[in-house]
């Protein structure tokens, strides 16, 4: 979907660009530009939904600018975000051979979603009628699950089966609807045990469930951005988390026939990074020096094979050999 993003004078991203793959795991120090990348794409989505008209005539010189190029069949389309400051990007200029092409891109951009899950929001009950999609913090999870069970029972069954395989201590997802039309969920534990209500579940259970909701979405978005995919989850489960996300980006590897979803995920866990040893082309390192940050693809490191003889990818990152670590004074 999105082939590359180039930044100029945007926050710490003064002059850098990034080729995007179907799957991208972004690592780096705090404040090094991981979230800025996701924010830029969100902004593109928002502005793309507005009419181009008058704004297209405006040109700003010297201000922050973000240039987005698209993958085939739209590789001759370019979108430029113009910003008045680091936080206000309100101008979108599009160079497209035809309106039809831009309309196709716009339709796909409109489906783009970004998430930074919050377990408390995910645990809260939700109006049954609001089951369209997860909020950016994962809120609305009960309604989304209930709607999935009601409207796409086969997909829900697959989601539930995968969830129970990953967390075999549970026996099923149970919904309760109150008189006010709000739905909440609990997890069965089999036998005569009382189901565990959502408010008593651990954070990791919510995050895993949230990722599964995305992974088994019958109508997935074109692009999904997820912050901190390792959060709350045991490191031995990271391989499974990676697979849940790979299902989105590489559907045929999972026996699914649909359009791939482009995934941009962030992590601060060296153990999660270890999961990408065989695919360094999927790893993006944000390098920050002083007030300036830039992106690097791990696969561009020519000495990577030698490094991996000496330690795991996560160890190499933590040590500082790969960069992407906080600066110390």
């Amino acid at each position: 979907m999105i082939a590359s993003v180039a930044f100029r004078n945007f926050k710490a991203l003064r002059n850098t660009s990034l080729r995007l793959s179907p799957f991208n795991i972004v690592i780096g120090a705090n404040g090094s530009g991981k979230t800025s990348l996701i924010q830029a794409l969100q902004r593109l989505r928002t502005l793309a939904m507005l009419p181009l008209g008058e704004a297209a005539a405006v040109t700003r010189v010297g201000g922050p600018e973000i240039t987005i190029a698209f993958a085939a069949p739209h590789s001759d389309v370019t979108a430029r975000l113009g910003c008045t400051s680091d936080v206000v990007c309100d101008l979108l200029r599009v160079e497209s051979p035809s309106q039809v092409q831009w309309d196709e891109i716009k339709a796909r951009l409109g489906t783009m979603r970004s998430y930074a899950f919050d377990h408390e929001a995910m645990a809260a009950s939700a109006l049954t009628t609001s089951g369209g999609g997860l909020a950016s913090n994962g809120a609305n999870l009960p309604a989304v699950l209930a709607a999935r069970q009601r409207n796409a029972p086969a997909e829900f069954a697959r989601l539930e089966a995968e969830f129970l395989r990953l967390l075999p201590e549970f026996s099923g997802i149970i919904f309760e609807e109150d008189s006010g039309g709000r739905v909440r969920f609990a997890l069965g534990i089999g036998g005569a045990g009382e189901p565990v209500r959502a408010e008593n579940l651990s954070q990791g259970v919510f995050y895993l469930l949230g990722l599964l909701v995305l992974s088994f979405d019958p109508v997935p978005p074109a692009v999904v951005c997820i912050e901190e995919i390792d959060r709350g989850i045991h490191p031995r489960m990271f391989r499974e988390v990676r697979d849940v996300l790979y299902r989105l980006s590489y559907p045929t590897s999972f026996g699914e026939i649909r359009e791939p979803v482009q995934v941009i995920a962030t992590t601060h866990s060296p153990y999660m990074l270890d999961q990408f040893r065989d695919h360094p082309e999927e790893v993006v390192i944000t390098q920050k020096h002083g007030h300036e940050a830039r992106f690097e693809r791990l696969s561009d490191r020519v000495d990577l094979p030698e490094l991996l003889r000496e330690g795991t990818l996560g160890d190499m990152w933590f040590s500082g050999v790969l960069g992407g670590v906080p600066e110390e004074r």
Binding site: R165, E240, D243, R247, Y250, S253, F254, D278, H279
Partner: peptide
């Protein structure tokens, strides 16, 4: 290569764990 061996077994470069 190791990747080729994996592909011969799993028929994909990214097999799920199961």
């Amino acid at each position: 290569t190791r990747a080729e061996l994996k592909f011969r077994i799993y028929q994909t470069e990214r097999p799920s764990l199961p």
